[in-house]
Design a protein around this nucleic acid. Structure first.
Length: 394
DNA sequence: ATGTCC
């Protein structure tokens, strides 16, 4: 491991990068990591091996601070990864049939939303109609098969069945988190908040609601997808990788910000690769203080959004991207998104996870293979029959 | 990332 700095507690800048020399980290991401680590009240910063540039602040990083920085959590408050054990036998999966059945997951759910919110103990928001929708960007719902089991005891302890499909859902708080951050920035700017201030308390209350909303969203996404497939499933894990929460650290109360950083203190979790590579079910090590109790949340982007189409379209047609090197099927009728989320746009997950293992932060329970990755059907404005608003003539 | 929005 190429540990380029001291332990956070001992380093003057408090910055630690967990990445081997073989893991490429963009210079802009390192600059963002250093700049963020220099904000007032910041005590420690950790870049995970999936570190890549974000909008001002890096993604794939954890920050420990005396103050609360909402902009550091970002707009997708509560985004995370949840795993279900389905009752679908892997050998019985007919991908083309499953693809055909997965329709209409983009629009509002047509079930009894008020009753469902009641069961989930979820308050009503202006974004109820978005509950149960995956969204864009890197969000997805994916059926996976178990490729290899490396820690049979841990695998069994999770009550997983290697002969049945798993469902992994990556989504967040949709427009709700975005509205919370936008309002906060309008009122407070990018400054850190004193945790005792009214502004901080108001933000935290809304933030915590967005966490619940995002988790419920993943649950409803799974329920809708399973319903479409005629399957049932049981939840196995659900972790947030965008949030801020208080942490007692060496006798002090500080605030841990995770921005695209998975928790290492809440049991096993899935670190997904791209849709064309394996994902990893890992067991965090008991002591992950060196990484601020955090792990990588995925492979990390190699190419910026919007760059992939230009880089790939000469050698790969859109149809080529609907099946992957591992034999998986992809449902994504948004062409730009199809390219943006191509496996080539991401770093290699094998190296990212190896960096974590070599740093002593986790071990691998099992590898998972994508069978069907659901992103999005055709965007509404490109649906057949959609009329473009006519530009008014002078 | 985003009831993005040409």
């Amino acid at each position: 491991m190429n540990d380029r700095s001291e332990h956070p507690a001992a380093s003057p800048s408090g910055v630690r990068l967990i990445a081997s020399a073989d893991t490429w980290i963009e210079g802009e991401a390192l600059r963002q990591l250093e700049q963020t680590a220099a904000l007032p009240g910041m005590r420690a910063a950790v870049g995970l091996p999936d570190l890549h540039p974000g909008k001002g602040y890096p993604i794939g990083a954890a920050f420990l601070s005396e103050r609360i920085y909402p902009a550091l959590v970002g707009n997708d408050i509560g985004c995370g990864m949840a795993l279900w054990q389905t009752d679908l036998a892997t050998r019985k999966l007919k991908p083309e049939r499953a693809v055909a059945r997965l329709q209409g997951l983009e629009g509002p759910w047509n079930g009894d939303l008020d009753a469902w919110r009641g069961e989930q103990d979820l308050e009503s928001t202006d974004f109820d109609s978005a509950l149960g929708t995956i969204g864009g960007g890197n969000h997805f719902a994916e059926l996976q098969t178990v490729a290899e089991i490396l820690d049979r005891d841990a695998f069994s302890a999770l009550d997983l069945d290697a002969e049945q499909l798993l469902l992994l859902v990556h989504s967040g708080s949709r427009g709700l988190g975005e509205s919370i951050l936008r309002t906060l920035i309008e009122q407070q700017g990018h400054q850190g908040l004193d945790p005792a201030s009214d502004a901080a308390q108001a933000y935290l209350a809304r933030h915590d609601r967005a966490l619940d909303w995002a988790k419920a969203n993943r649950r409803l996404i799974a329920a809708r997808l399973l319903d479409a497939l005629g399957a049932e499933a049981e939840p196995r894990l659900d972790v947030w990788h965008n949030l801020v929460h208080p942490l007692d650290w060496s006798g002090e109360r500080l605030w841990l910000h995770r921005k695209g950083a998975a928790p290492a203190d809440q049991g096993p979790l899935v670190i997904p690769g791209s849709r064309g590579t394996l994902s990893y079910l890992v067991q965090p090590s008991p002591d992950c203080d060196a990484s601020l109790r955090s792990l990588a949340h995925g492979a990390g982007r190699k190419w910026k959004r919007g760059e992939a189409r230009g880089r790939l379209s000469a050698r790969q047609r859109p149809d080529d991207l609907l099946t992957t090197a591992l034999g998986g099927r992809v449902v994504c009728e948004d062409k730009e998104l199809l390219y943006d989320e191509a496996p080539e746009a991401y770093k290699g997950i094998d190296r990212v996870v190896a960096d974590l293992v070599e740093a002593g932060l986790c071990h691998i329970i099992a590898t998972l293979r994508p069978a069907l990755t659901y992103k999005v059907r055709r965007p509404a404005h490109k649906q057949p029959g959609h009329r473009k608003p006519q530009r008014r003539r002078a």
